[in-house]
Amino acid sequence: MTPEEQNFMRKIEAEEKIEPKDWMPDAYRKNLIRQISQHAHSEVIGMQPEGNYITRAPSLRRKAVLISKVQDEAGHGLYLYSAAETLGISRSEMIEQLQSGKAKYSSIFNYPVLTWADIAAIGWLVDGAAIVNQVSLQRTSYGPYSRGMIRICKEESFHQRQGYEAMLALAKGSPEQKAMAQDALNRFYWPALMMFGPHDSDSAHSQKSMEWKIKRETNDDLRQKFVDQTVKQIEVLGLDHPDQAIKWNEARGHYDSSDLNWDEFWSVINGNGHCNRQRIEHHIAAHDEGEWVRDAITAYNEKKRAKKAQQAA
């Protein structure tokens, strides 16, 4: 190991954070850019299915809540893009990579959102799974990423709670509403578990990421945490657990559960989910259609600057 590498590993082992100007191995930088930008893209793409439901939310209160949540997701995208930018990649490069398909985002957003109950299930399960992951990432070794995660975790708890509350209203409502809630749970439970990524043994980036403390807990451990915490929540809703095999294992101190449909997982990751093409097309269209707004801001500011310069002269 070179002296730089030694110094880097010393900081990692001593739980000191790595900061933007520190020397770091190229692979560490690359790995972080991949993970943080993927995380940022997920926040941004995640606004699409929820944004679609703002006009259809069943009450003014639910609309206001959903608008706040979508606005938060935009903010979370910004925190994460900023953290990735400290590693030497520009915002426009990252957006280019998203739009060309080079960079990924969370597969969960490639599942279609069919009813209002799906929006409730997304808040509860998808944001719930994201929180499990993000709580763990607060201790990531890269300073800007860690600080971003701390800020996001503070804001995100409301997302899960409002989702569960909306789900509870449906589950305790009419038989039709309860059926809607059960259907949404059945469809979103499995993809939510897939959000934690492949089994540790099949995860291309896991080992190095753990060694460098980019990730602090493995995919399977985080998934187990989520499985465990969700059992009680389903029970309180009075809904049936989608996994017939769910069973408390006294010896492990955890719930045993069915294995996931990994063929589906890889198929969606590789672009063949229901909504992959639609999500990216929409992102590109929104970006292109917003061009005139960005041009107008620049033109206005240039005009303002010229006026100021004139006044000063």
Partner: peptide, 24 residues
């Protein structure tokens, strides 16, 4: 220090900062 953002000038940065970092 709470984070960073892109803006055209100080005024705009201040407005963006209000929207991004002081929503609660």
């Amino acid at each position: 220090h709470v984070g960073s953002l892109h803006a055209e000038d100080h005024e705009q940065a201040l407005e963006y900062a209000r929207d991004c970092y002081t929503r609660r």
